[in-house]
Simulated assay, not measured.
Amino acid sequence: MSPSTARSRRITPALVLTERMFMHWRLHPMVPLQSVLLPTVLLLTYYLVVSKSMVQLTGSDNLATLVPMCIVAGTMMGTLGAGFHIPGERDSGLLSRFWVMPVHRGSFLAGTLLAEAVQTLVASFLLMLVGMGLGLRFDGAWPAVIPFLLLPVLVTLVFTAIVMAVAVRSNSAPLLTLLGGIAIGMAFCTGGVAPLEHFPEWIQPIARAQPLAPVIDAMRALAEGEPAGRPLLTALAWLVGLGAVFGPIAVRGYRSAAQSGGAG
């Protein structure tokens, strides 16, 4: 078998499973819409209600930080919504059927990650357009839009691995709910709602040290035309580290659930 044929046999099933997720989302449109509608409502509500008070308090409407926060929070909402369907696929034996099919055994994981990445890219672009309608401007070079949109995609890929590591386990619904609360709380503790210096003093070090803070800071710097190197490198270090930890856990959990025909 030639190398190109081997690559094709690995890639094609992943693309088919990606298409399967898109078809599933067509039947359950609220799953992908969670990553657009809820953060859009949050963005509009906060901006229309609080922005004038924020200008009086800080001299800025904080839009360059609010838009990235809503993008990241929205993409995690969509990923978490998709994760709640995995226990049903595990319990029905669907994961086991994928496991014994004559395709690469990583196709299900690869297809899931690819589908989530595409959904995040589209949702991020739409929310960026909403933000621009409210006044968001890229004061630096327009190529900064590319890393601005790709950072949420990387967040989603890592968060998908974390969600799958939890979702394939038995009785995972309470853990997924807890994970969602933690993730959204982290997104809100990034300076999007208000600058971190206005947070209670005890929470400021935690807010600055958590993984999503450099992501939001890098996106804000890209939008405002400021140097983004340091927060960007910090964000990448966090994402690569979390991916290295939870990626193998997700693979092992998926293998266990698929081989047993039930929970891992």
Rank of each mutant, 00 (worst) to 15 (best):
A165H: 03
E116Q: 10
N171R: 15
G131Q: 09
A183Q: 11
V168W: 01
L127Y: 06
A187N: 09
T177W: 13
G135S: 13
V158R: 01
W142G: 07
V122M: 12
C189P: 03
V118K: 10
A194G: 07
L222P: 09
S170M: 11
A123N: 06
A115K: 04
G111N: 02
E226T: 09
P227F: 04
A218C: 13
I203S: 06
L150E: 05
G229F: 08
S124D: 06
A194D: 04
G181P: 05
E197P: 01
R230D: 14
F188C: 11
I216E: 00
G185M: 14
V168G: 00
M132C: 15
A141H: 14
L129W: 09
G133D: 07
L109H: 04
L126S: 09
L176N: 08
L154H: 03
T190I: 11
L149S: 05
C189E: 01
S124P: 07
A123M: 12
L212A: 05
G133I: 10
R208H: 10
I184N: 03
L134T: 05
R230C: 05
V168F: 02
G192P: 02
V158T: 06
E226A: 08
L126P: 05
G111H: 03
I146K: 07
L134D: 03
L176H: 08
L154E: 01
L126A: 15
S172I: 02
S170W: 12
Q210I: 05
P147I: 12
T112Q: 13
M128C: 13
M132L: 09
A161I: 07
V166K: 01
A209W: 12
A165Q: 05
E224H: 08
L157I: 09
A194P: 02
M219G: 00
A167S: 15
F148C: 00
R230L: 15
L129F: 08
A194S: 13
C189M: 14
G229P: 02
P205T: 08
P143S: 10
S170D: 07
P214G: 03
T112R: 08
D139M: 13
V163W: 01
F108V: 00
S172C: 06
I162Q: 00
V158I: 04
V122T: 09
G191Q: 06
Q119F: 10
R169P: 03
